[in-house]
Each structure stands twice: as C-alpha cells, then as structure tokens.
Amino acid sequence: MNLDLASIALSDLIEVLIDGILFGLQLSLLAVGLVLIFGLGGILNLAHGEFVIVTGVISAVLISSGWNPAVAILAGILFSGILALALDRSVLRPVYRLEGEMEVLVGLFVTLGLAFTLEGITSYLFPGLYFSVRVPVETVSIFGLSFRASALVSGMISFLSLMLLLLFLGKTMTGKAIRAALQNQTGSKVCGIDVDRMRSLVFFLGGLMAGLAALAKGIASSVEPGSGLELTSYALIVGVVGGVRSVYGAMVAGILLGIVNALAGYLLGTYLTLVILLAIVVAVILYKPSGLFAGGV
C-alpha cells in the first residue's frame, strides 16, 4: 500500500479528482430520485436501484432486436418512469394509509420485497445480459491531462440531467408545487395542490432520473441485472450523507463522495474504499441524522 502522498504526482491527483467528480455526478443522479421519493412519499425506496436495471435491460433488449439505440434508450428510461408510477398507484397505496414511523417501516419492507421481485425477474429472464453504450473516442486530453472519453460524456449527461431537474423544480409551476408539497403538505392542500398527484409525479420523475442514471452508468461502464441492491445502497449512502429529504444535499453529497471514492480507490483498493464510504454514512447518521447538507429542496 502506498500512502506516501508526496510521491503522488500532481497531475495524477488532478486526474483522480476529476474522475471523482465525474463519478460523483453519476452518484448524485442516482440519489436524487431516491431523495425526491422519500421527501414526498415518505418511502425509503429500496427498489430504486432496480429502476436503473430495468432501464438497462429494456434498452439492451430493444437495441438487440434492431431498434435505433437512441429510441431504445429513451423507451427504457420512460419505462422506468412508468414502472415507478405504477408501483406508486398500486402496491404502495395501502402503505400511505399508515401513519408516521409505521408508514416508513412498512414502506421499507414493501420496497425491499419489490427489489427482490424485480431482481429475480430480471436476472432470471436475462442472465448474462448487460447494457453498455460505447463512445467512439477512447481518451481525451485537456491541458496535458488525459481522461477517458466515456467518463466525460457520462459525467456531462449526469450534469445536464441534474440541471434539467433543478430547472423544472425551480422554474415551472408544477415543479414549485412539488417543492411546496415537500415542504408543507397542509400548506399545499390549502393552495389547491393535489398532494397525491404530486407524489405520483415525483415517483415518475424518480423513475426517469434512475433511467438517466442507467444511461450515464451504461456509458461509463455497464448496467447488468443482479446489481440493483448495490446501486440502491449507493443511492442510500449519498442520500443519507446529503440529508434524505434534500435534493441539493444529494447533489453535493454525491460529488463529495465521488471524490472520496476516487481518492480512496487510488490509495486503498475497491473493497476498503466501500468500507470507508459506508463508515462515513454511519458517522453522519450518528453525528447528524438530518444529513450534512440538509435544508433546501
């Protein structure tokens, strides 16, 4: 193990940092959907990672059956949105009728069950399938530093998706109504906002964001059935560190953890890096359960 920081070249360090930021954007994109759904639905959606897998699976299947890749991926993303919406309208309905801690607990188990259900179906029907989008250029060099083109494109897609989400939430009336419902449900009802509909919309949006995360991940690496719970745990890590109800928090935390991940990965290797990330989560929950960057939707 080489922990002698001085011996690491500065250019290496910058490359690692930027790699971390690019990966962090992916993490942010993965987490915003989870955070939105928890904020309004009160459901810590443990099936979130499966939405990513579903987009990947649908896209890969459509592409291999001859669809135009762009259309196929779009269809895959849309499908995840619709799946999330369908879950909100069906199995999760009875959960909303419960109150407080009970709602969260039952929601936790129902979505865990859904995660297993989806993980089983996708890995059974499509064993060995993986979704990956190749970028024609291998590496790009900027100012003498070289980056993987796929990581750059993936990071850009994540960034654009996050910006679009922020614009929607910040500028449109519907987006403001969603934020209003996140901040105060009684206040929203009094304004004539249908909170149930906003929740369905948030599920749809969360599904779309997970779908976009599948695209970003498919460009940077690959998406394959069976890794849904792992993706969920990444989203959970980011969500908890950022404050499980804060969209901005999730974005900042994602980038931060991306950098930690890249640095630790560079110095320590994969498994212990994950241990460090997980330890950060435990520390944050114990030190400040509301998250480091809570506040602000």
Partner: peptide, 11 residues
C-alpha cells in the same frame, strides 16, 4: 389562512 400559517419556509 391556518393559525399555523403553513407557509413554504424554504421558498
């Protein structure tokens, strides 16, 4: 106008 006002504090 509820007695608790029920505004959106972060907007």
């Amino acid at each position: 106008v509820p007695s608790e006002r029920e505004l959106f504090p972060q907007m």
